Amino acid sequence: MKWRKLGRIFAPDGSRRWARSYAIIPTAELVDDDRLRVYYASIDDERNGRIGVLELDARNPTRILHDRPDPVLDIGELGCFDDSGVNPSALVQSEVGAVMYYIGWQRCERVPYMLFAGVARRGEDGVFQRLRRTPILDRTETEPFVRSATTILREPDGSYRCWYVSAHRWGYVGEKQYPEYIIRTTRSDDGLNWSRDSVIAINFSNPSEFGFGRPWVIKDGSLYKMWYSIRSRTEPYRLGYAESEDGVSWARQDHRMQLMRSEDGWDQEMICYPCVIDACGGRYLFYNGNSHGATGFGVAVLEKE
Results as ranks from 00 to 15, higher is better:
A19Y: 00
R20A: 07
R20S: 11
Y22C: 06
A23M: 02
A23E: 03
A23C: 03
I24P: 00
T27G: 00
A28Q: 13
L30C: 09
V31G: 01
D34L: 08
D34T: 14
R35Y: 11
L36T: 09
R37D: 05
V38G: 15
Y39G: 14
Y39L: 15
Y40K: 08
A41S: 15
A41I: 07
S42L: 06
I43K: 15
D44A: 11
D45K: 15
E46H: 01
R47W: 15
N48D: 04
N48H: 11
I51T: 05
I51M: 14
G52P: 07
V53F: 05
L54G: 04
E55G: 02
L56S: 08
D57W: 09
A58E: 14
N60G: 14
P61Y: 07
P61W: 07
T62L: 01
R63W: 04
I64E: 07
I64K: 06
L65R: 07
L65Q: 00
L65S: 06
H66T: 02
D67F: 02
D67G: 00
R68H: 13
P69W: 01
P71V: 03
D74N: 11
D74W: 11
E77L: 07
E77F: 12
E77P: 13
E77N: 04
G79E: 11
G79F: 02
C80Y: 09
C80V: 01
C80R: 14
F81V: 13
F81W: 01
D83N: 09
S84I: 05
G85V: 10
V86F: 07
P88D: 05
S89H: 03
S89V: 08
A90G: 04
A90M: 10
A90P: 00
A90V: 02
L91C: 09
V92F: 02
G97K: 13
M100E: 12
G104W: 08
W105F: 14
Q106L: 13
C108L: 06
R110P: 02
R110G: 00
V111D: 04
P112R: 07
P112M: 06
Y113F: 15
Y113V: 12
M114H: 05
M114P: 01
L115H: 08
G118L: 15
V119T: 10
V119D: 13
A120E: 08
A120N: 05
R121Q: 08
G123Q: 10
E124A: 15
E124D: 12
G126F: 02
G126R: 10
F128T: 15
Q129R: 13
R130Q: 06
L131F: 13
R132Q: 13
R133I: 09
P135K: 03
P135V: 10
P135R: 00
I136E: 12
I136D: 06
I136C: 02
D138S: 11
D138W: 02
D138Q: 05
R139Q: 06
T140K: 01
T140R: 01
E141H: 05
T142R: 11
T142A: 13
E143W: 14
E143T: 13
F145N: 04
V146Y: 04
R147K: 08
I152T: 12
L153Y: 13
L153T: 03
R154L: 05
D157I: 04
